[in-house]
Design a protein around this nucleic acid. Structure first.
Length: 532
RNA sequence: GCGGGUGUAGCUCAAUGGUAGAGCGUCAGCCUUCCAAGCUGAAUGUUGACGGUUCGAGUCCGUUCACCCGCUCCA
């Protein structure tokens, strides 16, 4: 191990310790714990639920209500975003159009090189007759073009002109693991990029109607919130006064029956997304892609995910998803989690989806989803543009809320052997589930009588943002220590001086500094610190 | 899906096949004038679950569930 790697390892926080604190302080519990748990699901406790809500609210406020926090778009105008809240269950045809359902119950084969997916029983393989050595070439059954391509590749490999009569054919499903390793996929150049055939039930299936049966009434829990937006694109355009460019945003649960849920809440089977589908003219997609990529990065940074642990990573061409535009951008905002270090894990993906989704739904639903843009086109006699009809391109910033919470938890977790708790949670005040605590230094001498009303006042003004804690039990040090583990940024303490001069002590979580301020200034002080 | 590891109180962990414990935390009371002080009490376990071996299982065996690590996978 190099000195550098060693250093990296020792500076990585312990995921076990973080999970332990999450349980101990009520951030995150294993789902169905008293029944032995259930793989891939997690429950949020009191502090976790508030933390998650605060992160969701920050997103909602900055994205939807403030339109990118007031930042102007590449067109120099305010960014327009409207919200929707769509169903988890939709017409199953939605998922056929989106490409999620294809061959749902059939064994599928993926190509690691081209990211293509094939039905295993639709793939055939060819090799030179009488020659069992060398590479095998796969092609799509009853697809002449695919067959010719494979034959050409085989001919080139064998350095001789082969015809139909020179080859042996067999179904791909007959290949052994070793043979699969020397097989070239239908659209691939390298060998061994095809995965073994396997049933691919990524979507959760359910039944509609109390007496429904699975065959006739199957439906799916959505595997992403995005499609709910695309299928409502026309509704939003028709019923609101938005005009391209504009975005539609929503937060909500999505479900994926992951093969291997792993890494605490990072890959769960039920998770919450925060998605924006931003619709723009095809010519402007690149500018908007850059805008969103950069703004989303700065947004995460503004919530405390700063420094080397957060990176913006542009995808290589060979890892573009099926909907992504070739030559256009896809990038990930990634966080260095303790379990991915020194690597990174995805928090949010920003993709140029082109008009893929709208085109798919227009075709499958037999509906026109084109947008009529009356600010474009050549000018008419009256000097006004004649307008242009087009399918907008879509830039999609798609963030994982649960992953965001996990990153915030990991980033906030700060071991400190010098303080009583041994650790504190350095949440950004905006995200902290407990906004402030009010303590009487001791439970006598009239201090509780002053502290309790102060807590009630703060609760009236700030209670919609998070908890205002009041505690008079046990020693002051113990109460401070509890607040450190809960990540409460400010404690206001009433002591004997308060009785004399109406000042209180403000105790700062991160620095342990204390200052005195007038008791009637506490609400404004807190408002300022919470950046309201 | 494969391989390895781990499951005992809220947390961290003990317990030679022979009465399930400690520390911390939690709660109540007293005390306490700024960072988990102290004192007195209290609650908390089908030892992940099911089955087997045994006079007797937290401990041995089997199955299963969950989590962690490494592969695989993650349109």
């Amino acid at each position: 191990m190099t000195a550098n790697a060693e250093q990296t390892e020792s500076s990585v926080k312990s995921m076990d310790d973080i999970m332990s604190l999450c349980k101990r302080r009520g951030f995150i519990y294993q789902a169905s714990e008293i029944y032995g748990g259930v793989n891939g699901f997690w429950d949020y406790g009191p502090l976790g639920a508030q933390l998650k809500k605060n992160l969701r609210d920050a997103w909602w406020t900055d994205v939807v209500m403030k339109g990118c926090d007031g930042q102007l778009g590449p067109d120099g105008k305010p960014v327009e975003i409207v919200p929707v809240d769509t169903s988890i269950i939709q017409n199953p045809k939605v998922w056929e159009a989106s490409g999620h359902v294809g061959g749902f119950n059939d064994p599928m084969v993926d190509c690691r090189e081209t990211k293509s997916r094939y039905r295993a029983d639709h793939l055939m393989c060819m090799g030179q007759k009488g020659d069992s050595t060398g590479q095998i070439y796969a092609f799509i059954e009853n697809d002449d073009k695919s067959f010719e391509t494979a034959l050409k590749k085989l001919s080139k490999y064998k350095k001789q002109d082969l015809t139909k009569d020179d080859i042996d054919l067999c179904p791909l499903t007959d290949l052994s693991v070793d043979e699969l390793a020397i097989t070239v996929g239908p659209d691939a150049k390298e060998v061994g990029t095809l995965t073994e055939p396997r049933a691919f039930n990524l979507m959760f299936k359910t039944v509609l109607g109390a007496t429904g049966n699975m065959e006739d009434n199957a439906a799916y829990l959505r595997p992403e919130t995005a499609q709910g937006i695309f299928i409502n694109f026309k509704n939003v355009v028709d019923t609101t006064r938005v005009s391209v460019p504009f975005g539609i945003a929503q937060t909500g649960k999505a479900f994926r029956n992951e093969v291997t849920p792993r890494n605490f809440t990072f890959r769960s089977r039920e998770f919450e997304q925060m998605e924006i589908e931003f619709f723009c003219h095809p010519d402007d997609s690149k500018a908007w892609y850059t805008f969103w990529r950069d703004w989303r990065m700065s947004w995460w940074q503004s919530l405390g995910l700063k420094g080397d642990n957060l990176i913006l990573r542009e995808h290589d061409q060979d890892e573009l998803a099926h909907y992504a535009k070739e030559g256009a951008g896809t990038s990930d905002i990634e966080y260095r989690f303790p379990f991915t270090a020194p690597g990174f894990g995805e928090l949010e993906g920003i993709a140029d989806r082109t008009n893929f989704d709208l085109a798919q739904h227009a075709e499958h639903a037999k509906t026109k989803l084109e947008y009529f843009d009356n600010t474009r086109g050549e000018l008419a006699k009256n000097g006004q543009p004649k307008g242009e009809r087009y399918l907008p391109h879509v830039i999609e910033p798609s963030a994982g809320l649960d992953r965001g919470v996990l990153a915030i938890l990991c980033e906030a977790y700060t071991p400190d052997p010098d303080r009583a708790s041994g650790v504190y949670m350095k949440f950004h005040p905006r995200l902290a589930p407990i906004k402030a605590a009010v303590f009487p230094l001791v439970k006598k001498d009239g201090m509780p009588e002053i502290a309790a009303p102060l807590a009630a006042d703060l609760r009236k003004r700030f209670g919609h943002l998070g908890t205002i804690e009041y505690d008079e039990k046990q020693s002051i040090g113990k109460r401070y220590a509890r607040m450190d583990e809960a990540g409460c940024p400010f404690c206001f303490t009433i002591d004997s001086d308060t009785l004399e001069d109406n000042t209180v002590t403000v105790r700062h979580r991160d620095t342990l500094d204390q200052e005195r301020i007038a008791i009637d200034k506490v609400p404004d002080y807190l408002a300022e610190k919470l950046a309201l």
